[in-house]
Amino acid sequence: MNITTLVFILLSLLAVGSAIMMITSKSPVHSVLWLIVVFFAISGHYILMNAQFLAIVNIIVYAGAIMVLFLFVVMLMNLNKETEPVKNYRLQLIGVVSGGCLLLIILSAIMKIDTQQLVEMKVGDAGLIQSLGKNLFTNYVLPFEISSVLFLSAMIGAVVIGKKD
């Protein structure tokens, strides 16, 4: 067992554990904070796979911006036991069924995986900014440009909404 495996196991435990904590914790603010811990653990995994760019972008975008907005909204809502809506059994049953279906799909996908091919640690440069950029601008240039047009329109939309006095 070398140090990489150890770090991998620790990060995985952290990720899964805090994901469970996120679902089970009563307070929504705590849920959001646990989700942030999950993002950090996943960023750790990216770094293990030598994908520093993806790791840091994951932190900037998800932990740094999106979760701040989540926290923002959750803090503004008056969430406590009195105002929590009571869900009826039918809804809960539907939830269990759909969740179970998702679990089955994931399980079947895991079963199909060829276990001979392991994740490459510390090698490969797919997640480095240089190779990622090259890939995006050569092999995947059309989807990349379309999505960037989408983002640009979203940004301009935000500016337009801001301009409406």
Binding site: L33, I36, Q52, V57, I59, I60, L71, I129
Partner: peptide
């Protein structure tokens, strides 16, 4: 690290959590 500037940017964007959590 080969992502130095982005690291700075990431940590700066996390800085707000201290303020938000404390204030809440």
């Amino acid at each position: 690290v080969n992502i130095g500037v982005l690291y700075v940017f990431g940590v700066v964007s996390l800085g707000v959590y201290g303020i938000m959590i404390g204030s809440w």
